[in-house]
C-alpha cells in the first residue's frame, strides 16, 4: 500500500495568476495491443519550458504512452492535446512537422544511412539541411569525424548521440526522449543528459522517460511515476524519489 492519503479536491490556488496552458496534455488516454489494454487512462501534462521525467518499472507502459503521443500507436480512448489542439489520430509525420519530436527507445537512427544522411533526414520542410548538419556537429564534435560512416557501425554511445542530435536538429518545441541511457556507460549517460540540461536552459519543453532515476531527477523540474498503465503520482523530483522504491517494489 502506498502512503498516499486521500487527495484534496482539485481547485486553483486562490490569488495565483492563471498559469499558461500545458503544451502537451494526455487525458484519460487508453491504448491496447490487440485486445490487451496496456494504458488504462493516463493523465499527464507537460508545461511550457519544463522538464518532466516519467519513471516506472519495466512494462508500465511508458514507451506505449510516448508512442501514442507521437502518433505511432492508436489510442483506444481519451484525448491527446498538443499546444491546445486535439491531436488524436494525427500521423507521426504531421506531429513531427509541427514540432513534436520523439527520440524513440533503442537506437533512434537509420543504420543503413550515413551519419550525414541521418542528419539530413531530420531536416524536413523548411529547414536547411546544411545548417542542421553543422549545428549537430557543433553539439557533438565526435560525429563530425564520422559523417561518412554508416550509422549502424557507430558505437552505442555515438548512435545515441546521433539520435539525440537528429532529434534536436529542427529545434522542436517539444522533445520527447525514451530511455536515452539504454545500454550505455554512466559517463556517456552523464554527457547526454548534460546536453538535455543545456536544452532545458534554452527553454525547450522536454518529456523524458528514464530508468536512470538519479541522473534524470537531477535535470527534471517535475517527475511522475507510471505503474501498471497509469500515472499514479506526479510531484517534485525529490518527493517522487522518496516514493520510487515503494512504487517499484509494488508497495
Amino acid at each position: 500500500m502506498t502512503a498516499l492519503g486521500p487527495a484534496p479536491a482539485p481547485a486553483p490556488p486562490a490569488g495565483d495568476p492563471v498559469p499558461a496552458p500545458p503544451l502537451v496534455e494526455l487525458r484519460g488516454v487508453r491504448a491496447a495491443y490487440g485486445t490487451i489494454e496496456v494504458l488504462h487512462g493516463v493523465d499527464l501534462s507537460l508545461m511550457p519550458g519544463e522538464v518532466l521525467a516519467v519513471l516506472g518499472p519495466n512494462g508500465a507502459g511508458k514507451t506505449t504512452m510516448l508512442n501514442v503521443l507521437a502518433g505511432l500507436h492508436p489510442l483506444s480512448g481519451g484525448d491527446v492535446f498538443v499546444a491546445g489542439r486535439r491531436t488524436n489520430g494525427a500521423s507521426a509525420a504531421d506531429l513531427a512537422r509541427v514540432g513534436l519530436c520523439l527520440v524513440p527507445e533503442g537506437r533512434g537512427i537509420f543504420p543503413n544511412l550515413t551519419v550525414r544522411e541521418n542528419l539530413r533526414m531530420a531536416a524536413h520542410a523548411g529547414h536547411d539541411p546544411r545548417a542542421v548538419e553543422e549545428a549537430a556537429y557543433e553539439r557533438f564534435p565526435r560525429l563530425a569525424q564520422r559523417r561518412r560512416q554508416l550509422a549502424g557501425t557507430l558505437s552505442g554511445g555515438e548512435q545515441q548521440m546521433l539520435a539525440l542530435a537528429r532529434g534536436l536538429a529542427t529545434d522542436p518545441a517539444v522533445l520527447v526522449l525514451d530511455e536515452l541511457s539504454m545500454g550505455l556507460a554512466p559517463l556517456v549517460v552523464e554527457e547526454l543528459y548534460g546536453q538535455v540540461a543545456e536544452l532545458a536552459r534554452r527553454g525547450v519543453s522536454i518529456l523524458v522517460v528514464e530508468q536512470f532515476a538519479r541522473v534524470v531527477l537531477g535535470v527534471a523540474d517535475r517527475a511522475a511515476i507510471m505503474l501498471g498503465g497509469r500515472v499514479t503520482d506526479v510531484g517534485a523530483p525529490d518527493e517522487i524519489e522518496s516514493k520510487l522504491s515503494a512504487a517499484y517494489l509494488g508497495g
Partner: peptide
C-alpha cells in the same frame, strides 16, 4: 490504493482544452 479520483475531463470548446482547469489539476497534483 487511496488514489485521488480523477476529475472528469472538462468538456472542451471547439477542440481546445479549457485553459484553466487542466493546469489547475496538475498544480494540485
Amino acid at each position: 490504493l487511496g488514489l485521488e479520483r480523477r476529475p472528469e475531463p472538462t468538456p472542451s470548446l471547439a477542440g481546445a482544452p479549457s485553459g484553466v482547469s487542466a493546469p489547475a489539476r496538475t498544480a494540485a497534483g
